[in-house]
Design a protein around this nucleic acid. Structure first.
Lengths: 359, 359
DNA sequence: CCCGCATTCTGCAACGATGTAGCTGAGAGG
DNA sequence: CCTCTCAGCTACATCGTTGCAGAATGCGGG
């Protein structure tokens, strides 16, 4: 059916192996021979059979990506950028959804995804470091994304959670906010994305000489509805607050939705800040102040690191850890400047506040 | 390195081919033999080499999905559901981003994605039917998603664009709106998603005995910023309007953002409606009235149709066309009931309006 | 008692590429 | 003039599986 190397070899009057050598840029081939082969390839429209190549060579030039749910905007944007980064290096990305369950995270690490690909980009949500290490014994390269696991055994690309959360909290404090509710963590969290971001929050409070109030820390599923119901609980609890820091944008957007619904103005009644800078954050009403965690850098670095491992050019015996740089995106939901400077009347997205929006 | 069929055969004391037969559920194998083989498989932890299987059998149990950009929420949600539907049938989905350019759509149709997979789910944005037909001559099954192409040669799964847009327009009319701006189409569009949805709009106007005013039709890129700038132009143009119908949710959300920014209340000043029912629509402020186009049905049906073609169980010589059922999701941005019933004061998401939100 | 057929299993070739080894001829060196 | 080296090519085995052909066994029917 399809054109094979054999057909090309016959057409060019050389051996099959010479065609292979041309395709693999083998050094010692006379220019004339190379040209004959290339002409035959062009004439017949030959394309290498990737499956056969993969069987023989043991490499597929495919990377696996494991995320819990591709419809979550953060993961969708990450996947998109990872695919672009991989494509630029002539690799393809195959995505698998783990639904954040233990069994499917394990299947992703050990099952057919792992077999089909040359290495994995893995966003663990439930497995711990030992479970991953056990599951991956003697298998292909693995780069961890996110911070659920932080272990020197693994290569890892992450964001500056503590620093970014601290900077965002400092921004809210600089705006005159004194009772900043945090949505998406438990007061005792120290590790993982919730714990690290909460740590940054605590550090900023401490530097400002403010006490940490556990009553302001509201656990929630990291989804829009989680943010909404957390705000509902917060309001019902009667704790006063003047700002809400959603530990990701979905939480923050859900929280903002609920605040507005209940007549709390944003940012006049309560400022709202998020984390991730998903595209949606620029276009919410009011637009969302958030942390841009350097997703481009994360995508580029993690793909590069994984490919370096696959191709053997990264030789570090220990896990390489990369932290991407972050930036604050100050928008209308928590503008710069003190509370007193905010307009006390007008619609919720008054132009004085919106004027601070970044481009 | 890895355990092969040969190892299993030796351990079970049968021929390699018998192991293959067991794995492929060949009929004539004694239960005792089958059990021996299964025991050996379990003991050695054998897993079939998918690459070798794929080379030999010509099937990979992978489906290709081509979308322009996976970070667009609609495509991300679609991809997620398609993956789930495929996984339930023991197929995997490989996504490729086409960036909506002619060359990359062609590469997706003919290049390595097509070679690696057993069939393609394709969302064309620039290629026309003839170009696709030419590119796919004599290749693997292809199912079209979306309505950019509508051609009897192709299998296609789509949504009820005309009917849904008509129903949504009728809903806005029933709410007392009389000058409904449409964002994301040109007045003359007849085909493709913009044209079909615009047709539905015109039909609803006609049934209500209203004239079609081309000045209310504003072209825009189908993104949030496109919706925002379209509203800016609309307002600058001075055309009065009392509702905005964004032809997808991104447009509608961008439009709503811009309206609120400029002090137009939603829905009091202008109702806003969208199309797609992405997750975000439920949590915008105010929540977005939109069309749920039956994405679950689209995902299930298109995966099933493609697999039926691959496995030969769908034999129709002509293209099979499937239309998913839609539903209106009436939320706060364009609630049910007449304009006069809306509260004339209070915050933009007054509870009277929000009370109509579906669960 | 033998034939025919269903059942159960085996062996070989093949899918389309790459790795390894080896062959050939030309030029360098003695 | 003979050996040695190495560029440039060919031949064969191999990756791990499945398709095809066929061998061996048992059983029922004529």
């Amino acid at each position: 059916m399809a054109v094979t190397m054999n057909d090309v070899a016959r057409a060019a009057g050389v051996s099959l192996k010479t065609v292979s050598n041309v395709l693999n840029n083998y050094e010692f081939i006379r220019p004339a021979t190379r040209q004959k082969v290339l002409d035959a390839i062009a004439e017949l429209g030959y394309e290498a059979n990737l499956t056969a190549r993969s069987l023989r060579s043991g490499k597929s030039r495919m990377l696996g990506l494991v995320v819990s749910d591709l419809s979550v905007p953060y993961y969708a944007e990450l996947a998109s950028k990872l695919m672009t980064a991989a494509a630029a290096r002539d690799y393809r990305v195959v995505v698998e959804q783990s639904a954040a369950t233990r069994t499917s995270e394990l299947t992703a690490l050990q099952g057919s995804l792992s077999q089909l690909t040359d290495g994995l980009l893995f966003t663990p949500l439930v497995l711990d470091a030992d479970a991953v290490a056990a599951a991956r014994r003697g298998t292909k390269p693995l780069v961890m994304l996110g911070e659920h696991i932080d272990d020197p055994r693994f290569d890892q690309v992450t964001m500056k959670n503590v620093g970014a959360a601290k900077a965002m909290t400092a921004h809210l404090l600089a705006g005159g906010r004194r009772r900043i509710a945090v949505i998406g963590a438990s007061p005792g969290d120290r590790a993982g994305s919730p714990g690290l971001r909460l740590t940054g929050y605590r550090e900023a409070l401490a530097e400002a000489g403010l006490d940490f109030d556990p009553a302001l820390i509201v656990p929630a599923e990291w989804r829009r509805d989680g943010g909404a119901s957390a705000v509902a609980r917060l309001l019902k609890g009667g704790q006063p607050f003047d700002a809400v820091f959603g530990l990701n944008d979905a939480l923050a957007l859900g929280a903002m939705h609920e605040l507005l619904l209940r007549g709390v103005r944003v940012p006049e009644g309560a400022a709202v800040a998020g984390f991730d800078d998903i595209d949606e954050a620029r276009f919410s009403s009011p637009s969302l102040t958030t942390v841009a965690p350097g997703m481009n850098e994360i995508a580029e670095r993690s793909v590069q690191l994984l490919i370096d491992r696959i191709e053997g050019s990264e030789k570090a015996a220990f896990g390489v850890h990369v932290e991407a740089e972050f930036e604050l995106r100050i928008r209308a939901s928590a503008p710069a400047g003190g509370v007193s400077q905010l307009p006390q009347t007008g619609t919720s997205t008054a132009s004085a506040a919106e004027g601070k929006v970044d481009p």
